[in-house]
Simulated scan of single mutants.
Amino acid sequence: MAGLLQGDRGKMMMKIYHGSSFALAGLVPAAMVIRDGNLPVDLALGVALPVHSHIGLNFVISDYVPKSARLPARASVLGVTVATLYGLFQLNMYGEGVSKTAKRLWRS
């Protein structure tokens, strides 16, 4: 559990963070190019986006939040990450998917 709360600590988390960066660099353009959406791409985005954000926000907490408030801040970020994972999973499985939803933002 400590690894999840301190997402910016350890070699494994750094590998996951960098791996998610590379994954997102390929998945986001692919999701925009694929016409009708693609479930594997949407599922990968539904995991990579929240995981990458979770680790990145833990870096922000380490840099800018006072030590006394870090544990509650990290717990809050973990809660938001879990809720985001759940919401994106629901969108991908029972809705139109991440890529179709994002494309809808640019349609008139």
Rank of each mutant, 00 (worst) to 15 (best):
S76R: 11
M1F: 13
A44M: 08
L45A: 07
A73Q: 00
M12A: 15
L43S: 06
G10K: 12
I16M: 09
A30M: 11
M13D: 09
A2M: 12
A23G: 05
G26Q: 00
S108I: 10
L4G: 10
W106P: 02
H52K: 14
L4N: 07
K11Q: 11
A102I: 12
P40V: 07
L4F: 13
L57C: 08
A25H: 02
R104L: 13
G26W: 10
M12L: 15
H18T: 09
I55V: 14
M12P: 10
G56T: 11
R35N: 12
I61A: 07
V33L: 13
M14Q: 15
D42I: 00
Y94I: 08
D42S: 04
D36P: 01
G37K: 03
L88Y: 03
T81R: 01
M13K: 10
M12N: 11
D8M: 10
A44P: 08
M1R: 04
H52A: 05
V60A: 12
S68I: 11
P72D: 04
L49W: 08
V60F: 12
T81I: 00
R35K: 14
G97K: 03
Y64I: 15
A69W: 14
L88E: 00
A75R: 13
L4Y: 08
G37I: 07
S62N: 08
A31Q: 03
G95D: 02
R70C: 00
G97W: 00
V51Y: 05
G19M: 07
A102M: 07
S21A: 14
A73V: 01
N38W: 12
D36Y: 10
L78S: 10
A2S: 09
L105H: 11
S20K: 01
A83N: 00
Q6P: 06
V80K: 01
P29C: 11
G3V: 08
Q90L: 15
D36E: 11
V51K: 02
L88D: 00
Y17H: 15
L57S: 12
A75I: 08
A75Q: 05
G95R: 06
G19T: 10
A44N: 06
L5P: 05
K103Y: 03
L49F: 10
M12Q: 13
V60M: 04
E96K: 06
R70H: 10
D36C: 09
F89D: 01
R9L: 14
S68H: 12
R70Y: 06
